[in-house]
Amino acid sequence: MAETLSTDVGKEVEYKLHKLPKIPLYEEERFGTLKHAKVVKVRRLSRKYLLAELELIEPFDIPPGPAQFVMIWLPGIDYMPMSITEYDGSRITIFFSIRGEGTRALANSTGKVVGVVGPLGKALAINAKSSHLLVAGGTGLAPIIRLAKELNDLGLLTAVIWGTRGAEDVGEVPVYFREVTGFELSVCTEDCSVGYCGRATDLVSEVLPKFEGGEVIVAGPNDMLATVADLGIKAGTDPVLILESMVECGLGICGSCILGKTGLRLCRDGPAFRASEVMGYLTKYLLSRSEVE
């Protein structure tokens, strides 16, 4: 399976997924100017999670790769980063929950035209020599769906673990996940109402010892990333973490998504990092979590 990607910095980058070296981890960074898309459908998958389908009026300059994101502009309301869940050349799908004014407006935008800037961030290059364990928390599932599909197509997927609060939040999410990826989602609920009883990180700690030498890719809130990173490093792997945080410009210059003293910018140097690169920044989340527990 080959895929050709180009950048806007004057060079064509061609790569074959199955020939990618393990390091460097990423494809070259790519950028875009403001494009427009029509919100054709918003589907509610559960009490908490929604799916917005956007039809691109102007195509992206280059196709988005795994883990890349877009800034969605809802004129007069918000300009917010959103991971790309599905992409088929003319449509993108966004998996999200209502967290504020912007996401509420997106949920009610069917038929409207919105601004889209992207794809932003570095695409995660798939390690085609390894099996993969994918882990997601909440809306962290958004980039994981895309990765799961590509990895399952390549026969490199071992398990996908997703954690959320309870059955009402789960709803049709696993059905949608299977439709897109052809793979079964391992659901964990904190209230034990469906699937594995406990946090996704609890299941990870059970599974990880049996998953020798494979790649672990995690997306979710920082405390979850910190926990999986810690588990992974102790088990001798260096998980890939897909971070979420305040992204303001998406271009790497405003400084709002700097990851502490690592000096790394989530929007340009990420959003995916090796755990070892960002542990200095994430340790505080590990501590804050253990205080709560």
Binding site: F31, T33, L34, D78, Y79, E248, C249, L251, I253, C254
Partner: peptide, 18 residues
């Protein structure tokens, strides 16, 4: 200001009002 505060321009360069 609230975002968007910095955006690339189709005619080249950036416009910002942070």
């Amino acid at each position: 200001f609230k975002p968007p505060t910095i955006i690339r321009l189709p005619t080249g360069g950036l416009i910002n009002a942070v």
